[in-house]
């Protein structure tokens, strides 16, 4: 069974989000397997989140200001 090709823009966005999230989890699993321990995994996750989450927040703030 093939998923329909022609989908609404909102559905396409959801698909792309799902794909990216799945890819992210796969990368996370690889890190889990490769890292020396769960402590390292948590540390790397925290570092990454501390960079990316504020990046999103700043970007969102700037966008709202432009409107």
């Amino acid at each position: 069974m093939r998923p329909p090709r022609n989908v609404s823009p909102a559905a396409a966005r959801r698909r792309s989000l799902l794909l990216d999230a799945t890819l992210g989890i796969l990368i996370g699993i690889v890190v889990l397997i490769a890292a020396a321990g769960i402590g390292v995994v948590g540390f790397l996750g925290l570092l990454g989140a501390l960079v990316i989450v504020p990046w999103y927040l700043i970007e969102g703030g700037l966008r709202r200001r432009r409107r």
Binding site: G28, L32, G42, F43, L46
Partner: peptide, 26 residues
């Protein structure tokens, strides 16, 4: 017309998902 998300944004999104997954497991 589907608005294409730039590649760098998708990479950022993938990395965020990876980080949140790692944080959750830890």
């Amino acid at each position: 017309r589907v608005e294409r998300v730039p590649l760098w944004r998708r990479v950022r999104r993938v990395l965020l998902a990876a980080c949140l997954f790692c944080l959750g497991v830890a």
